[in-house]
Design a protein around this nucleic acid. Sequence first.
DNA 1: CTATATTTGCAACATTATTGCATAAATGAA
DNA 2: TTCATTTATGCAATAATGTTGCAAATATAG
Lengths: 138, 138
Amino acid sequence: MSEHTRQILVRGRLRITDFRLRLLEVFVASSHSALTQKEIEARIGAHDRITLYRTLKSFEAAQLIHQVVDGSLENKYAFCLHDCPEHRAQEEHAHFLCNQCKTTYCLGSISDLAITVPSNYSLDKVQLALTGTCSACN
Amino acid sequence: MSEHTRQILVRGRLRITDFRLRLLEVFVASSHSALTQKEIEARIGAHDRITLYRTLKSFEAAQLIHQVVDGSLENKYAFCLHDCPEHRAQEEHAHFLCNQCKTTYCLGSISDLAITVPSNYSLDKVQLALTGTCSACN
DNA sequence: CTATATTTGCAACATTATTGCATAAATGAA
DNA sequence: TTCATTTATGCAATAATGTTGCAAATATAG
């Protein structure tokens, strides 16, 4: 069962350790929504806080996860799907934060929106943070 | 000169104190861009950090300022203009973060964008965080 | 199996945020 | 203006969050 997560670490050229496998399991298990550090800590069980910080950094550097802007002013992390839109040159991603359950759903690409910036500005990244009530809470 | 800021406090039904006037001056002086707490602390001079926390909360509760989502994962605050779009029922606001100078510009309303959410979701707030290089840095 | 490089976990420390409380200040009423 | 009441401020103590250095443990290559 951990063969899948092993593969992910190999692809990211990261050494395979128990802690990294455990952390990856957490992300894979909620790949549809983004997690706060608190939520991660609750799910991963006993652990060293410092190691978690560093492992999150390694994962982010290896592009296994990415930070999510959902309008909640909390830092959240999400697992990168294979062809992760966050890591294309022109990153365009929409997230939806439910006011009730505080879940952040990934809504995928928004590249079809017509976004323009003032002249002489150049645009690298478009993050769309939507807030409301999700279908589960409605 | 502080008559203007006095008026703002009166409108917000807040008591007029030296510290609040000083903080308001800071916001009014950069009403075109959003400030991090660090930036505020640098501009306001000697102060008590706890008082700053509490005053920011009062200002936010009184809708004198609002928090800004600019994609930087840093909490920023901006002064509310009189007819502040952040405080309409359907809040729609775009901000632009410059990668070079880290300034966050307010780009105003985005209500003309066609945003749709999955069926059975309801939408309260739309925050568009744009990142790139501003004209000053280009 | 061994040598090397990386990761982990602990300690110490730095930064950021919160709560309680006594003092100081602002406001409304006499 | 002065006084009584309410609110804000600043300090102390504490909690929560994030960082750095280092020795021991672990993973990997040969």
